[in-house]
């Protein structure tokens, strides 16, 4: 990866790609009404037939199938991994998802279950979901998850620090965690539902990217609202600006609240018309979701047969 033609994956640039906290002027204001209107307009794109099928298959390849519950167990994770590898065993043309996302303790289980599948293992770390622990503990959390076999780390930023103006602290933590990740990809969760404004979402995106994020991600899924199309567009615009300034391709992951195939297609439309073809790949766009997959499968069957199957025809994992 990182060839002359293809996208340069920022994470593979290594920690030397890191810069300093960007000046405030690097983060322009965001107009609330206009951004919501724009995603509203994109929601009315009509995605039919071949476009729908291609979009749904792409959405599966971009999915981080997630379970982040206190009651997660090896059995639950193994079941999820089965689904991740073969979303529909009766239809081999359905691709595997991009990754399975679990807590660090369950990474070894997932690793075993996904052996040889090409499905990545993502692990939340850094005192997920609040991020309110000492940095040393967060770093240890990350190192363990990587040791256990995580390919991707989903960290949370310290929203308390960000909202109290300590951007430098947020920046330094991300940078330190990026270093602790080693070869693992770093996704930085902004928890946009706690940031209070689109201006803050934009600013946090810039801080995260300049600190070394490979992906920026909306939410933990534990706070409402989680991902929204408008927040995603704000973050995609930050990614676009960062690309023009640095040449680096940063990925985007909306997570939480994306349950319907139609929503997934809406997100893909936003990506297509904001960043273009280069980002329409699992390397640069992911969905964090736990229940989206079955609706996508149901829509794919509907496209083929013209009829909706009962929900019971799809395994719940």
């Amino acid at each position: 990866m990182g060839t002359a033609d293809g996208p340069k994956l920022a994470g593979l640039n290594g920690p030397e790609g890191r810069g300093a906290l960007p000046p405030l002027s690097a983060s322009p204001p965001v107009e609330r009404v206009a951004i919501e209107e724009r995603v509203g307009a994109l929601a009315r794109r009509s995605i039919k037939t071949t476009a729908k099928k291609a979009g749904l298959l792409l959405a599966i390849r971009m999915m981080d199938l997630t379970t982040l519950e206190g009651k997660d167990s090896p059995g639950k994770v193994r079941a999820l991994c089965q689904k991740a590898r073969w979303p529909d065993r009766t239809r081999p043309e359905i691709p595997s998802v991009a990754a399975v996302c679990v807590y660090p303790n369950l990474v070894p289980v997932a690793k075993e279950a996904l052996e040889g599948s090409g499905v990545h293992i993502a692990s939340v770390a850094t005192a997920f979901p609040s991020g309110l622990s000492p940095l040393s503990i967060k770093l240890d959390d990350v190192r363990r998850a990587v040791e256990y076999g995580a390919d991707e780390i989903d960290m949370v930023i310290d929203r308390g620090a960000f909202l109290s103006g300590e951007e430098q602290k947020v920046f330094d933590e991300i940078a330190a965690i990026k270093e602790a990740c080693g070869d693992a990809h770093l996704k930085v969760i902004l928890e946009t539902g706690e940031l209070g404004s689109y201006d803050n979402v934009r600013r946090a995106s810039d801080v995260a990217m300049y600190a070394g994020a490979d992906f920026i991600k909306t939410s933990t899924g534990k706070i409402q609202p989680a991902a929204t199309p408008a927040v995603t567009l704000v973050m995609l615009e930050a990614i676009r600006e960062f690309y023009f300034k640095t040449g680096r391709y940063i990925g985007m992951k909306p997570a939480g609240g994306i349950r319907a195939a139609k929503q997934a297609l809406h997100y893909l439309v936003i990506v297509k018309e904001t960043l273009g073809d280069a980002w329409l790949t699992p390397e640069l766009f992911r969905f964090g979701a736990s229940t989206l997959l079955n609706d996508v499968l149901m829509q794919l069957v509907k496209l083929e047969t013209g009829a909706y199957q009962a929900a019971e025809y799809f395994s719940r994992d």
């Binding site: 995605i47 476009a51 792409l58 297509k272 273009g276 073809d277 329409l280």
Partner: peptide, 14 residues
Amino acid sequence: RRLDFGTAWEYAPA
């Protein structure tokens, strides 16, 4: 640096 609004995922006629 440029963005490529190409044919990676095309909308079908609607």
